[in-house]
Design a protein around this nucleic acid. Sequence first.
DNA 1: AGTCGTTTGTAGCGGTTGCTACATTTGTAA
DNA 2: TTACAAATGTAGCAACCGCTACAAACGACT
Lengths: 181, 181
Amino acid sequence: MTRTPMTRENLLPLLAAYVLEHGLARLSLRPLAAAAGTSDRMLLYHFGNKQQLVAQLLEHIAARYTLALNEVMPSGRLESRAACLETVVAATRGAGFRPYLVLWWQIVAGAAQGESPYAAAAGAIMDRLLAWLEELLPLDDPAPGLAARHILTLIEGAQMLDAIGRPQIADVALAAVPPAS
Amino acid sequence: MTRTPMTRENLLPLLAAYVLEHGLARLSLRPLAAAAGTSDRMLLYHFGNKQQLVAQLLEHIAARYTLALNEVMPSGRLESRAACLETVVAATRGAGFRPYLVLWWQIVAGAAQGESPYAAAAGAIMDRLLAWLEELLPLDDPAPGLAARHILTLIEGAQMLDAIGRPQIADVALAAVPPAS
DNA sequence: AGTCGTTTGTAGCGGTTGCTACATTTGTAA
DNA sequence: TTACAAATGTAGCAACCGCTACAAACGACT
């Protein structure tokens, strides 16, 4: 029964799991600590205060999110922009992504309000997603940078419409052919 | 000095103004009431409890939002899909819309979490925006329903990217030509 | 043996939260 | 004038919040 020392690093996954289930909006230290098998005092001992805890948690979750994407996604290039769009949409609409997406819109809301840790996490995730989209596009695409940004914008709009219960609007929009190629 | 009777109806605009400035995420009754010139007890007297207050507030704000759109937007039809996209983006990127957009992403976050008043408000706003986009498209557009949905999806994706501090991505995406017409 | 960082126990601070109890004042209609 | 419901003032409840204080254990390392 060697008790693991509960450093910041091996605490973060437990905290992230709780946050993915319960969201960031009404996060409070005591239930969070209980879920991770500690006390609020220990969280403050390790992270200083709640702000810093949340900031580190956002970094951790942003990293996890891109890892989750890598697992779900094919590694090779696809044959067209349309295939690229379709593949990403199909993957991110899977049931396993729901918790991430609920959290995602809370992060966006925080970023929109100007809270910098949220904006940083959201920006990092989008940058990663964009780079990853470019690697997915066919090699002969005439303008991969443009295409990737276009597809990303469409996907995010569609995900928002999904989130608020208007997937039909997104479906029609996504069925429309993306620009040439 | 005839004291206005402070019914629910003439209280809502004052409450909405406060919420537009301070957001919904950390809304609490006492500061809200103070801003509207009442007490928390009166708010509960009029609205029953906080949940119902927020629900009515969301309805009110959704209505206001579409009114604000109508004021900013041209009434006639435009000559192309591209012009339509450009016009809406320019209007919603104006400084006057910032408070609405900050609130908007909080509503989306609430909707994504499954809170029904938020989903209802968000859905109503998107439906209205969609109908309004269809009326803006040129009469000779071959598929106005499809075009409106496509443009709406793009716009919302772009607004999210704006909100998180990545307007460059949105710019490139919006510069790409929307599908034929 | 002694040191040091980590973990825990116990307890509480001052503040805010949504909400309620009770008594009182107002405006209006019979 | 009386009656009654709407509106308000004052006061407080129990719960929770982030955070702190102080002291005692623990473990690993020198």
